[in-house]
Write a protein that binds this DNA or RNA. Structure first.
Length: 559
RNA sequence: CGGGGCGUGGCGCAGCUUGGUAGCGCGCUCGCUUUGGGAGCGAGAGGUCCUCGGUUCGAAUCCGAGCGCCCCGACCA
């Protein structure tokens, strides 16, 4: 049992001055976390209890799928990072020791675990294997934000699977799907498993676990039976009324009109009747990506579809290859054009003429310019998947699972001998979870201005017992006895035994947000009752004599 | 990296325009009263006004440089 009179729970009446996100404000106000610098956060005692509850759930489920817990260092030699080509990632903290040896602070542990695998795994008989640990990660983030949502140092559960082939990897991957589904369910947060980008470095499949909430940094596209990160989501575009057919393009004067909105308003056309030409450098080649005027280019989908790295072209590169920005287009140029799949080759569009203050109308893809077609746009809310409109929601990434393949095992020489004595690279997967983000997501999803409303499985304590009245009063004596009964029944209990006014105790209890609150006050004691408030339910009075066992029963029914 | 904002007791803020004794609320300490929704009265403690440099008789205030923090965007293996 924890007694508030001798605990450190630094609650605040007011929001921290610079906090915006709900979870940031509430976790500070409830005395759970404190900041040490940009992206550096300490967990105060009550907050650490929450973190520990999350990690306990993760540990149980990782053990349930046969994962072996270990611990690898944060500070490590740079060499394996050089070998895997990740030593130059801007987010990686690099440093030297007193002998000038190159070291790094690990931002994840593929390099470390694969180095061990290379030493220790010899035979197919050693496989499959799942190794994991709960360890600090260091990342030099360009912009830490929103309390513990994006920090430069954080604890991550990262697991790595080792298999002899793709079929084995598929099994290990599926085990993690099962474990992760259970972890996020048990943590009591709302979540989606979404398809996600595998990145330029390969890998055959990846999913992210996303917790929807206002402070989310990612966007997920959702429809019945469909969930994907907007980075890779694909859907059927909404129809648009298109211009009547023409025989050839015609110049249209558009003085001073450079945006899609201006041009479409001026011509009385829907934005979808225009084509937007986005100049990019694709694998070093100047290329024009063309999407409908009401759509946006998705650089990740473009890169995945074309199999090259992509970035926006600079003003100089545009000027050099096409003409003035603001009215660029695909007609009459020999620059390669990638046309989005939502653009019809059967209809006419308005495009920039590569000439100042001029557009072309009646332009038909194929007839008037040649192109490669691919799905390169970001989906929009209302687009269809399986005939159902999608919605787009912000979400926090709380976990991810990734089929790595042999990228790391090949780079670091992690091989095994198969039955025929042939050396093969180990097929790997990696699987991460951010416990701090789970806690923050729970606060985002269930918090209010008044305080946090923890899921029963994550609350810092199961029951908070408020002893109103003075410290030598019968209230405290009774409250202490009930708190002891509850603890004996297995509950984790916080007893507010401070010399403080009732209002202050209620306000702090609201902030901390335990699933059960028990109030022992004079009003109740006169009737030989105490007041119980279960999260989301009305207050009720229960008999003093049986309070301990009754509340214990309620507590058990919650978990 | 681009844009915007902010740095004054533990927390939230005013003061800066127009230079002249550093203030308010909360919190904290002590005493008395009070105890079912952040109590009342009284007495106190606590500040290199982010740092450095400049202007000035005199700088929280004006000027310059730097540092730190927040928000938006870009980025995020």
């Amino acid at each position: 049992m924890d007694r508030l009179s001798s605990y450190l729970l630094p609650t605040e009446k007011e929001d921290p001055a610079d906090a915006e996100a709900l979870s940031h404000r509430l976790m500070v106000r409830a005395g759970l976390i404190r900041q040490l610098g940009a992206g550096f956060w300490s967990w105060m005692p009550a907050g650490w209890r929450v973190h520990n509850r999350v990690t306990s759930i993760i540990r149980e489920e990782m053990e349930a799928i046969g994962g072996l817990e270990m611990l690898m260092p944060v500070l490590m030699p740079a060499e394996p990072w050089i070998k895997t080509g990740r030593h130059d990632i801007p987010e990686l903290f690099r440093l030297k020791d007193r002998k000038s040896a190159d070291l790094v602070l690990a931002m994840t542990h593929e390099e470390a675990v694969t180095t061990h695998a290379a030493q220790l795994i010899r035979s197919y008989r050693d496989l499959p294997l799942i190794l994991w640990h709960m360890q600090i990660k260091e990342r030099d983030e360009p912009r830490p934000r929103a309390g513990v949502l994006r920090t430069r140092e954080f604890i991550m559960k990262d697991a790595y699977s080792f298999d002899r082939d793709e079929a084995g990897l598929a099994e290990s991957y599926e085990k993690h799907v099962v474990a992760y589904d259970r972890i996020f369910d048990r943590c009591g947060i709302e979540w989606y498993r979404v398809e996600s980008d595998v990145g330029m470095m390969g890998g055959s499949a990846a999913h992210e676990y996303m917790a929807p909430c206002a402070a989310g940094e990612n966007e997920v596209a959702l429809a019945p039976g469909y969930a994907a990160n907007v980075e890779i989501a694909t859907a059927q575009a909404q129809a648009v009324d298109l211009a009547a057919s023409s025989t050839e393009p015609a110049k249209v004067a558009t003085p001073g009109l450079t945006t899609i909105e201006q041009v479409s308003a001026s011509l009385g056309l829907p934005a979808g009747g225009l084509l937007k030409a986005v100049p990019v450098m694709a694998g070093g080649t100047f290329t024009v990506a063309v999407v409908r005027g009401d759509h946006r280019l998705n650089e990740i989908k473009f890169a995945n579809a074309m199999g090259v790295d992509v970035r926006q072209a600079t003003a100089d590169e545009i000027e050099q290859n096409l003409g003035p920005a603001g009215s660029i287009g695909p007609v009459g140029t020999d620059v390669p054009v990638v046309l989005d799949s939502a653009v019809s080759a059967e209809h006419d569009y308005v495009v920039g003429a590569n000439e100042a203050d001029t557009h072309l109308s009646g332009v038909r893809p194929g007839r008037d310019f040649s192109f490669t077609q691919a799905d390169i746009r970001s989906v929009e809310a209302g687009d269809l998947v399986g005939g159902q409109p999608i919605t787009i929601e912000p979400a926090i990434e709380v976990g991810n699972i990734f089929k790595l393949g042999t990228r790391y095992s090949e780079a670091l020489g992690a091989n095994f001998l198969d039955e025929s004595g042939r050396q093969q690279p180990i097929v790997m997967g990696s699987y991460g979870i951010g416990p701090a983000r789970i806690a923050a997501a729970a606060v985002e999803q269930r918090g209010s201005d008044r305080g946090i409303d923890w899921p029963a499985s994550l609350a810092p304590w199961d029951v908070q017992v408020l002893a109103l009245g003075k410290s030598d009063s019968r209230e405290l004596e009774v409250a202490t006895r009930i708190a002891q009964d509850l603890q004996d029944a297995g509950a984790e209990v916080l007893l507010d035994d401070r010399e403080a006014s009732p209002g202050e105790k209620f306000a702090d209890a609201d902030l901390v947000g335990c699933p059960i609150r028990l109030t022992v006050g004079r009003k109740g004691l006169e009737k030989e009752t105490v007041e119980v408030q279960v999260q989301g339910a009305e207050k009720t009075d229960i008999a003093l004599a049986t309070a301990g066992s009754e509340v214990a029963a309620i507590w058990k029914s919650l978990s």
